[in-house]
Design a binder for these strands. Structure first.
Lengths: 335, 335
DNA sequence: GTGAAAGCGCTAACAA
DNA sequence: TTGTTAGCGCTTTCAC
């Protein structure tokens, strides 16, 4: 159990002042090159580690980025986290990850918790049950830069980073129709979400292109935030046992795809219902019943959102905004 | 952009000293109950947030726990992270997560990075390519408590938190034999790992129970750490195209299960090879070809390891050690 | 029960 | 180029 070395220890040994040591370590220019070398060499030899708390306190920044996701144990978000971390790490930031479980109240708690930790910036996938954005704008007004990702946000002065899903959604619906589906249902996350709306638009456009009528009774929405898995099971049962039963479903959400597939596997083993929809699992092509899926560039989403945030923190274009790639989801027909 | 409130601001308004404010906020007993109420009320009214960096600096602890996993975007580890976070959060710790990608060099970088951040404790799933534990013992000697999880470690003074997988591995192998398999192959992660050895023992015992001979050419090991996916594909191709082809495989690792299933799906659609093995995906029961799987209590593993670590940090039995549940994996035959 | 003062480890004016 | 000094926001002796 050895005491940790501080700059004070170094200057004592080397006969310098702490500020000189500090200059050497921070690669300042107002210092003799030889002195710098001497300090660096000694610091290295004793395996000196700066105390990040002291630096943070002094500089007034915590070098941490807050990240609010719905669930860590969700493949889409795991990949986002991976992407966020890859950029954050390289820029000296560490992550404080919290989970909202898609619940408004939890999201507020998350924001408060992160505010306490004095994060330098915030990355958030808004909960589907969030309609009031006050907790965000309050933090933003305090000068904490933030970037929303995955879903759009109504706050004009805060950027959103999203993935284009119109085209793949259109293709996925079209695929079902070309395979012979006459009654394609739509299963989506909360109706008000920008993602749901974009994907529904694509679904409706595809129906129209092939002269199929949209049928409101075949369009279902499920809001995870304030619902139980029983509710979800009820919704799906309802969809598949109605008189007006669909022969195919386009599923506009990762988790709904999972739920729907598990349901069909369990209760409707030998059905002929065709499915296509969103899923980011690496294993999606193994799913049975067969499932054509849309994969989103989640890792890249995390990266782009983080670059944008770090730009905002630095108040300058550190990452070239023009180089931020357009993020597009891709369709993978079942083979 | 409002300035953040500090204790100084509070004592000025209330006509108290900073130390009194500090006492009120830290719920000290050597303070007048009325004074405390007054401070608390005012602090609340101005939404005062303690500066965690200042507290950390003063107290000499960072309130952070380092976590080294192989990959964030791996379902087993996502669930572990979820479990770790649930306990850490409740105890005022935040997580600094790093990924080793199962590579020894990355693990060393991770440890150095976490040491720089002055973590209060470390949780680690050792990389499969790690044979030298010096980077860990060096940190441990500096007084940083640590707990290994998932895999055992050879350092006598550092605890490991693992999951019992013997029984489920035995059952999974037995299942294949009962279904008629005569030549059951074994596919495992690096041979030296404690997990691999435990599972192989179960596999061999099951073979023996049913009078089947172990065949070294049917036992393959794959070390992720320093290999490419090409290597893996080669290994699997080799296994399934040998003269002495197996009619079933027991797969002793999550990721190998995925790889093997994807391979069979891609190249051997209509084979009759039976598979059982480890997989923590919620979707495992959807996999085709059919797959009987073993699921590990990953969330609980994260929780237990974190409780143990926090005990070590506190140097006292904060969580009752006797209450730490035995962690056992479970077998789920394909239905 | 409360205040004054020192100091955690570092950075950044300001002097020299 | 280097040293001196003050102070980031907080906790904690030590007086009173």
């Amino acid at each position: 159990m050895t005491k940790t070395t501080t700059m004070k220890d170094i200057d004592e040994v080397l006969g310098l002042s702490t500020s000189t040591v500090s200059r050497a370590l921070s690669d300042s220019h107002e210092i003799n090159i030889e002195t710098k070398k001497r300090v660096l060499a000694y610091a290295e030899s004793v395996n000196f580690q700066q105390n990040p708390m002291a630096v943070s306190l002094k500089k007034g920044k915590s070098n941490s980025i807050g990240l609010i996701v719905c669930d860590v144990a969700n493949y889409f978000f795991s990949q986002v986290i991976d992407g966020v971390d890859s950029i954050a790490y390289d820029n000296g930031y560490h992550l404080i990850i919290t989970q909202s479980h898609d619940i408004y109240q939890r999201e507020i708690e998350n924001v408060n918790h992160l505010a306490k930790r004095h994060i330098d910036g915030l990355l958030v996938a808004v909960a589907s049950s969030t309609f009031n954005y006050d907790h965000f704008s309050q933090l933003h007004d305090k000068g904490i830069p933030m970037v929303f990702f995955d879903r759009d946000n109504p706050l004009g002065d805060i950027p959103s980073m999203t993935i284009q899903t119109y085209q793949s959604s259109f293709t996925a619906t079209e695929y079902l129709i070309k395979k012979g589906a006459k009654k394609v249902a739509f299963l989506g996350h909360a109706e008000h979400l920008s993602t749901t709306q974009e994907r529904r638009k694509a679904y409706l456009d595809a129906l129209e292109k092939y002269g199929l009528n949209a049928d409101a009774s075949l369009m279902k929405y499920f809001n995870y935030g304030n619902s139980t898995s029983k509710d979800l099971e009820g919704l799906i049962t309802n969809l598949f046992s109605a008189d007006n039963k669909p022969d195919a479903v386009f599923i506009a959400s990762d988790r709904l795809s999972n739920a729907c597939l598990l349901f069909l596997k369990k209760f409707q083993e030998n059905n002929n219902i065709m499915l296509s929809g969103f899923n980011n699992s690496d294993m999606a092509e193994l799913f049975s019943p067969s499932f054509s899926f849309i994969r989103q560039p989640a890792f890249e989403l995390g990266q782009s959102a983080t670059k944008k945030l770090i730009n905002l923190i630095a108040q300058k274009t550190k990452f070239d905004e023009d180089n931020l790639q357009d993020l597009v989801s891709t369709f993978h027909p079942y083979k």
